[in-house]
Design a binder for these strands. Sequence first.
DNA 1: TAGTGGTCTAGACCACCCT
DNA 2: GGGTGGTCTAGACCACTAC
Lengths: 245, 245
Amino acid sequence: MRVQRPKPITEQVSDILRQRLRNREYPPGSRMPSESELALELGVSRATVRTVMAKFATEGLILRKQGDGTYVNERIRDVDFRYGGIWDFSRLIEDNGYTHSIKTLLVEERNPTQQEAQALGLDGNTAVINLQRLFMANNQPAICTNNAISRSFIDVNIDLTQFNSQLPIHKLLQEYCHQDIAYAITDIEAKSAAAPINAVLRRSADTPLLQLTETFYDKVNQPLVFGISYFDQAILRLRLVQAWG
Amino acid sequence: MRVQRPKPITEQVSDILRQRLRNREYPPGSRMPSESELALELGVSRATVRTVMAKFATEGLILRKQGDGTYVNERIRDVDFRYGGIWDFSRLIEDNGYTHSIKTLLVEERNPTQQEAQALGLDGNTAVINLQRLFMANNQPAICTNNAISRSFIDVNIDLTQFNSQLPIHKLLQEYCHQDIAYAITDIEAKSAAAPINAVLRRSADTPLLQLTETFYDKVNQPLVFGISYFDQAILRLRLVQAWG
DNA sequence: TAGTGGTCTAGACCACCCT
DNA sequence: GGGTGGTCTAGACCACTAC
């Protein structure tokens, strides 16, 4: 276990303001206190407040008007909506108004597929750990994910049957591989899914699925995880907020 | 015509550094000059350089390592890749390695559909301008877009036949409506497209399409444009880069 | 130990909106 | 005119990495 430093001030400010937004202490559509007021109240510099506000603005959470003030965007419901940052399927399900749970379908060690080997930069003989999971929304199957991690990242002594597969992928990597994800590249496609996928999602084959193909990298550009996920659109919406400035 | 202020310094710095990255003056994978060096060289403060670098980092363009340096991410090819910011289909096509052109299929004034009226907050009697365009990649149809703008935004004297529909949507709004887009909400879905869409995209009906449903808003949260777009996946890939921090 | 990026401050000036 | 967000600076200190 590592010694915990106190959180950076910007993060603390961010937490406080997110909390107030979630509690509707600053109601949707209303004008927030000015940056100077917030800085004074929280005992930090205006620059620090502005750093946080800039992040909120790119998420579309607030609308800033020069010469006027900063307003809470009533169109963005969930304060935890994330723009930037890797997608967290558990949160995505919660954001859509469901309670989530994770069902582990498979944990196995096997040789990589050709696609996995290419994405992870492996030769065909290096094994991968394959983790297949089903994200449930109100106990209905919503997302089916398949993640491959190079076997060499994981301590050989780990008992796969004891694997805590409830964690989001970046936590899994921290826990079992001591690796931090720096960024991800995601391809979004519309697919007619194969029969097995339709079976686990309990859906008919006539409507197409959203397929996300993700590769996660660390700071030295080493590929960590390759994953393919399928979305059931009957339950979930994939929604982006894109802000200018 | 409005008087042009000189560009903000951060934007000038951003332009210069993007240029150098594009020219491979800072080659992919190499270490960039330190923030202090850049600040000194460009005659700006380190904070200004950091503002720009932070933006690049969220785009995945660079990888910053504390105690070491800043490295050019060789996995992100095109320097103009945008994360955050509204999607510009013309640029998206160029990013995929094609030359783009725009074919205007239709410019008409009509009553809004129910979906358009709801998104734009109109009653059924307020007309909209409907703009249907086809974005071509190497003269092949790649994206079919359909945008509805409230008629009341546009000068009644504008001759629709003279409409310059070559512009991206945010430029169109500036030009003809004097409105600035602040943010957009986009839903991404996999669809089996209707026959007319398949016809204009010259594709068979057996493979699904990506459908983007976008609504654009201004700073006072007024809906400006509602649009539905279809992607031909055989030609284009919808790819996101998501970075942490 | 030297140099890098990470964090934060205090303060200045500007453009803009409201009244 | 007074207040707001937008921009930029100079400088301080910290955490971390490479050497």
